[in-house]
């Protein structure tokens, strides 16, 4: 594993290489080199089994983190190739030609995160939701609770009391708060 990391690191200028377990490595690669590296890993390093393509929304950094998780059936190791792509202009080169199932992942990511993969088959078709007109539902800034409350009907007649607040109202309604007041003023 170590020699592999060294070999690939220099070749593809990997950043933030994290060896999570003996058989699992995650590393960032530049967006331009990603598909190249995935191909290289498949063809020359024996990472022939494509396990997973996923995405994490790092909304604070304005980035989507794409993950290509490859598996080497011989050495029984996994290599997670991560790519940071811009959140505002989320386009990524399609990899559907490498494995037969990747277009499904790309179709899902298009729907769930709004990342476009030009050229990927059926990428614009609905995948799991139908007639979705809100922002892509897996983005962090999509508030599912709010959406559900606005869209669906909740059963009425529920009200909860916070024990501490309730006891305050019941037992010592005149509790003074000075420091808070002071803090607010400043």
């Amino acid at each position: 594993m170590k020699s592999l990391i060294e070999r690939v690191s220099t070749k593809y200028n990997l950043q933030e290489v994290v060896q999570q377990r003996d058989n699992l490595v995650f590393a960032y690669v530049d967006k331009e080199l990603a598909i190249d590296m995935v191909t290289y890993m498949r063809d020359y390093e024996g990472y022939a089994h494509f396990t997973l393509m996923s995405c994490v929304d790092w909304i604070e950094d304005g980035k989507f983190q794409l993950l290509y998780l490859l598996n080497n059936p011989e050495t029984k190791t996994e290599f997670g190739i991560k790519v940071a792509i811009d959140r505002d202009n989320a386009v990524m080169q399609s990899a559907h030609h490498l494995w037969e199932q990747i277009w499904t992942y790309q179709r899902e990511l298009k729907e769930a995160f709004g990342i476009d993969f030009p050229g990927s088959p059926r990428v614009d078709e609905d995948f799991v939701v139908e007639g979705w007109d809100d922002m892509p539902h897996m983005r962090r800034d999509f508030d599912t609770n709010k959406y559900a409350e606005e869209t669906y009907f909740m059963r009425e007649g529920r009200k909860s009391y916070d024990p501490a607040t309730y006891m305050r109202e019941k037992l010592y309604p005149k509790q003074p708060v000075t420091a808070k007041k002071n803090k607010d003023e400043q």
């Binding site: 529920r158 009200k159 909860s160 009391y161 916070d162 024990p163 501490a164 309730y166 006891m167 019941k170 037992l171």
Partner: peptide, 19 residues
């Protein structure tokens, strides 16, 4: 699923919120 609600017959006192 759980709401804390006041119930009859249980008093709010020190060590018991009455909810």
């Amino acid at each position: 699923a759980i709401d804390m609600v006041p119930v009859e017959g249980v008093e709010t006192k020190s060590g018991d919120s009455g909810l």
